[in-house]
Each structure stands twice: as C-alpha cells, then as structure tokens.
Amino acid sequence: YSRQGDGRAVLRSSIREYLMSEAMDGLGIATSRALAIITSDEKVARERWEKGSIVLRLAPSWIRFGSFEYFFHANRHAELEKLADFLIRESFPELVGAEEPYLKMFAEIVRRTAELIAQWQSVGFNHGVMNTDNMSAIGITIDYGPFAFMDTFESGYICNHTDTYGRYSYDSQPGIGLWNLQRLALALSPLIPQDKLEAELERYAPCFTTKLLELLRAKLGLDEAQESDGDLFRSLFAMMENAQIDMTPFFRTLSRYDGKRSALLSLALSPDPLNAWLDRYDARLSLNTSSTDERHVRMLRTNPKYVLKNHILQEAITRAENEDFTLVNDLLRIARDPYGEHESFERYALPTPPSLNNLKLSCSS
C-alpha cells in the first residue's frame, strides 16, 4: 500500500518473481523462494487493466535494513534492541550468548551483503530497486521488481525506467550495497559503538573484491590466483562492452574454448577487441596446471547456459495472460537447472535479438 498503491499484485509481476527467484536459487545465489501463484478474476489497474494474482513467497527471514531504520528514526530504541535480539535468535543462533552479539551480527550482514552483490555482478544481474527496505538482513535476494539479467554487456545498464539518474544501475550496485550498510550502521548505533561499526564497514570492499575475483577466476577456468588477474578481468568487461557481446552465451561458449576462436568471434560485433583479449587469455591459461578437459568441466558447472532474460519472461507472461501456462512451467524447469543442456529449449540460450536488447521495465506490481 506504499506510495498510495492499491495493495494488489498483477499476474505479470507475479510470474516474474515466481520464475526469477527459482532461477536465482538454481544459480546458487541466496534468495527468497516462490511456492505458488494464485490467479484472480479481478482486474487491476496499472498502465492498462491486468489480471490480478498472488505469489506465495518463502524466506528464512523477511527482516530488512529498513526494519531497523523504522525503529531508529522513531526513536524507539527498546523495540530496536528487541528486533536485533529476534534476528539473532532466528537467523544467527550461533551468536546467542556471544560477546558483543550485535556487532558480530552486523559483521555477518556486511559479509553476506558483499558476497551476494559479488554474485549478482558475476552473472550480470541488475536488481533495479536497491533501497534499504529491499535489502535483506540475512543477505538474500528479495523483492524482485524491475530486475534484469543483462543481454549485451553494458556496465551502466539501468533496468528500471523510473531510475532516471542510474542510482541502481549495474555498475552502481556494489557502491549502493555499501551505502545501504552505512544506513543500517546508523540505525544500529544505539546498540554498537560507532568506531566498531566503521571498522566493519571498511571490510565491505575487500570482502566484495575477494569474492568477485574468486567467482571470475571460476568463470574463466583459472587455477591459482595471479597478481595480473584483476587487469585481465577489467579488460574482459571493457572488451565485452566495446564488442557488444551478450554476456551469458559468451561465458558458456568460453567454457568449451580450446584455442579455436570462430564460435566466440561469432558473438562479437567487432572481432578485433575479442581477438586481442583472447591473446591475453591464452597466455593466462598457459599458467594453469589442470588439463583443458578439466577446465571445460569446471567452467560448464560455473557458467549457466540459461538465464531468464526479460524477453523470455515476457513471452511466458503473454501466453499466461491468455490462460496458457505451458511456457511458465517450461521455464521453471530451465530455472532449476540452468547448467543443463535442455535441447528442446536451445533458442532461449541464444543471444538476445537486438530489438529486445537490455529492456527497461516498470517496478509496478
């Protein structure tokens, strides 16, 4: 009912959350889950009249950063402490009876948030509405609105058409994660000394970077860490943006790379940037101790063949609005096994058609 809303959800957004939360779980990314969708005969007014719906969501906790802010800004510190105690009992039971439990709870929230956003970045996921009330206090992905998996890699991609200034763009997500944690630190300041909160906040960036580097090494099939890896990864994303490469099929194709470049080059608008980067990649692979076959096996388990892009979801929504839920059920199978081959669904693993590339969406439910 926020922002003078009517408290209702539409089938469109319910299908998106139902499928996407299961897809994130299939990728191994912490998330709320969806148990069921219930459709309604009642029409709901949005940009047009749409079918109403209810999505039944499940999560270990629905406490958000904003839950603490609510009590802090109302100067209700007793309730703030009760909320922190409840969260510790329910979600961090190992901290019950520990010394400085609130500080240790905050430290764990910092770590989980940093690692979650690193996972988002590694698969090209753009949440779209990262306000503090959409940030989970246990570090899971919640509140799927105008989210998107990127198609052609675009560092400044904005998936929410109301995000005029790009506050929640893809490349802004790590910084917004820290900003939100700073707001949470302020809300917890009646319970935790400021200097200790600041010390934990300083651990966010190293934690994020460490996790992202770990994930990118896995995506590229690299064995031991090398000092030059950061430059290799930065040049990779610059190359993908310059050559307008669709992120998901690129990493999947790279998972079978054996020195032959034609399959990869076919994904690039211009071959020159990709060839130059592959020269660097070949040199880096020469430092691996594992075999090419072993690398392929690891990478195919790391780089999904399928992510639920917005044009795919829209096709399922259009059919469902006409009482055909076949594709919704098919996409649910893909969502739960994104690393499988699913030969009958090959077209959903292809690069996105240019006319449907990196769409922007409404956050209206």
Rank of each mutant, 00 (worst) to 15 (best):
Ile192Pro: 03
Gln194Val: 14
Gln194Trp: 13
Asp195Ser: 15
Lys196Arg: 14
Ala199Trp: 11
Ala199His: 09
Ala199Thr: 12
Ala199Asp: 09
Leu201Gln: 01
Leu201Pro: 01
Glu202His: 10
Arg203Gly: 05
Tyr204Cys: 00
Tyr204Glu: 00
Ala205Val: 14
Ala205Ile: 13
Pro206Arg: 00
Pro206Ala: 03
Cys207Thr: 14
Cys207Glu: 09
Cys207Ser: 06
Phe208Arg: 01
Thr209Met: 05
Thr209Phe: 12
Thr210Trp: 05
Leu212Gly: 01
Leu213His: 10
Glu214Thr: 10
Leu215Glu: 06
Leu216Lys: 04
Leu216Cys: 10
Leu216Gln: 10
Leu216Pro: 04
Leu216Phe: 10
Arg217Ile: 00
Lys219Trp: 13
Lys219Thr: 09
Leu220Pro: 01
Glu224Ala: 15
Glu224Tyr: 13
Ala225Lys: 10
Glu227Trp: 06
Ser228Glu: 09
Ser228Thr: 11
Ser228Tyr: 10
Ser228Lys: 11
Asp229Ile: 00
Gly230Glu: 04
Gly230Lys: 11
Asp231Ser: 14
Phe233Leu: 01
Arg234Asp: 15
Arg234Phe: 15
Arg234Cys: 13
Arg234Glu: 14
Ser235Val: 07
Ser235Gln: 04
Leu236Thr: 12
Leu236Trp: 05
Phe237Ser: 08
Ala238Leu: 15
Met239Cys: 10
Met240Gly: 07
Met240Thr: 12
Met240Pro: 10
Met240Lys: 08
Ile245Asn: 02
Ile245Arg: 10
Met247Gly: 03
Thr248Asn: 12
Thr248Glu: 06
Thr248Phe: 02
Thr248Leu: 00
Thr248Asp: 05
Thr248Lys: 03
Pro249Ser: 06
Pro249Leu: 04
Phe251Pro: 02
Phe251Trp: 04
Arg252Gly: 01
Arg252Asp: 00
Leu254Thr: 00
Leu254Val: 01
Leu254Cys: 03
Ser255Met: 06
Tyr257Leu: 03
Arg261Tyr: 05
Ser262Pro: 13
Leu264Asn: 06
Leu265Ser: 07
Ser266Leu: 10
Ser266Cys: 11
Leu267Asp: 01
Leu267His: 05
Ala268His: 02
Ser270Asn: 13
Ser270Trp: 15
Ser270Lys: 10
Pro271Ile: 03
Asp272Arg: 09
Asp272Asn: 14
Leu274Met: 03
Leu274Arg: 12
Asn275His: 13
Asn275Met: 09
Trp277Tyr: 06
Arg280Gln: 11
Arg280Thr: 07
Tyr281Leu: 01
Asp282Trp: 09
Asp282His: 08
Ala283Cys: 05
Ala283Lys: 11
Ala283Trp: 11
Arg284Trp: 03
Leu285Phe: 03
Leu285Met: 03
Leu287Ala: 14
Leu287Cys: 14
Leu287Pro: 08
Leu287Trp: 08
Thr289His: 15
Thr289Cys: 15
Ser290Phe: 08
Ser291Glu: 07
Thr292Ile: 09
Thr292Val: 14
Thr292Glu: 13
Thr292Pro: 11
Asp293Tyr: 09
Glu294Trp: 03
Glu294Gln: 07
Glu294Ala: 07
Arg295Asn: 08
Arg295Met: 07
His296Asp: 05
Val297Pro: 09
Val297Asp: 12
Leu300Ala: 06
Leu300Cys: 09
Thr302Arg: 11
Asn303His: 01
Asn303Tyr: 00
Asn303Thr: 02
Asn303Trp: 00
Pro304Gly: 11
Pro304Ile: 04
Pro304Gln: 08
Pro304Met: 03
Lys305Tyr: 06
Tyr306Pro: 00
